[in-house]
Design a binder for these strands. Structure first.
Lengths: 129, 129, 129, 129
DNA sequence: GTGGTCTAGACCACA
DNA sequence: GTGGTCTAGACCACT
């Protein structure tokens, strides 16, 4: 896997595919799996790999560029930006916190309090994430 | 809280609001917080409370009726159906499992393996869910 | 004209049409001709008026939303955002300054120094801008 | 400056770089800073100076040759053409007029009428163009 | 009827 | 071959 970005898309989730792509790339940056200067897959390559229309990928890359996460050089490719103000340690922590809170809220809805969740996590078998 | 269903909606998440409503109601059923025969809020009341267009609530209730989760009795209201085949113990477990897996996958993307997640959960302060 | 935004597009200029649209809207905001809460023309209406594909307008509006200039409410329309940090007095002055500098540079290339430009402007007839 | 052509390029403007180059050269001709027979920089030299791909320069020169502004003599270089029908006094005036009109239109959008523009130009400090 | 998403495909600018 | 722009058109979410 080595630095590769994993794109696990869920077409039926209601979340637009292009936003899922944005999220995966941002997460990869936030967790340090990709670094400033790294090249993203080309639009066409990723479109083929994910069986999507190139425009969908382009839309994701474009929004990332507007946000300052990536830099685009027409003719050569799309690269992780070095000077993105958003992607510092604080952002990472914040995203982790939000993810945990959302999860706990959902589990709570399903009848698990924090303790029960921890218990469950220590036992539930699963893919070895 | 008294058996009430909590509707925490996120307009910016990309997930259609009516699907978020469906999920909250289904979760309430799955976790036993509401039971067969319980009355749901009226469409207008819920629309007012959540500041949404009544059509949005109606769409959610309608979808839930199609799925057999609720029954609508014209003139009197919408009630949780007793004999919904989908909402048994198996469904609950499955949803819990999926929620946990999705969470672990996302945390993994953010650089936390299962162990780190458990550690975090035992420590991170938060609302007491 | 009263607050209307004028969209004078030049298809042959090399500047993407959607960027020209963005510029016209930003200028209208900067100069105070449109204010927070004002509704922009609908995507389809503007597309018809400018004889463009609705997607082109949508792209412009979308970028303006990402930049925080407008707010979009699916189903009801697109509105000027009230709390856009970019559009303050400083931004206006900066844009005016840049526009003047670019103009002087171009005129200089054409053989006019600052004095000659002022002379020209006091004399050249034209539309009464 | 010694008759040199100034190439101030703006990569982010949306205007193709090769068209910006064409414009600068045409302006230099129109304003008399370069004359028939003058040699343009070689493609490689200019590419190096402007940090562009030689193909981009070549495309600009090629277009200028098609328009009759320059002549390319294989093996010796690219020269300003003497008998270009387009580059007479009328062309110059027309370009000046258009530049002024475009500027006034943009300033008008920013809230300055012709008078205000003249006032501004007489006062605004700037590089001494 | 409003905006949003996605597809398919043509053509352009640039390396 | 890279990304960018624009068109055309289908379908969805929401007012």
């Amino acid at each position: 896997m080595r630095g590769q970005i994993e794109f696990s898309l869920d077409a039926g989730s209601g979340v637009p595919v292009y936003r899922q792509i944005i999220k995966h790339i941002e997460n990869a940056v936030l967790s340090g799996r990709v670094k400033a200067g790294d090249q993203l897959p080309t639009i066409r390559a990723l479109a083929t790999e994910l069986k999507l229309n190139p425009n969908t990928i382009a839309k994701a890359y474009n929004e990332l560029e507007i946000r300052g996460v990536v830099l685009t050089q027409a003719g050569s490719g799309t690269f992780i930006s070095g000077k993105c103000p958003e992607f510092n340690e604080g952002e990472h922590s914040k995203k982790v916190f939000e993810t945990v809170e959302r999860f706990l809220r959902e589990m709570n809805e399903l009848g698990f309090d924090r303790c029960a969740v921890v218990d469950l996590l220590e036992k539930q078998p699963g893919n070895e994430n």
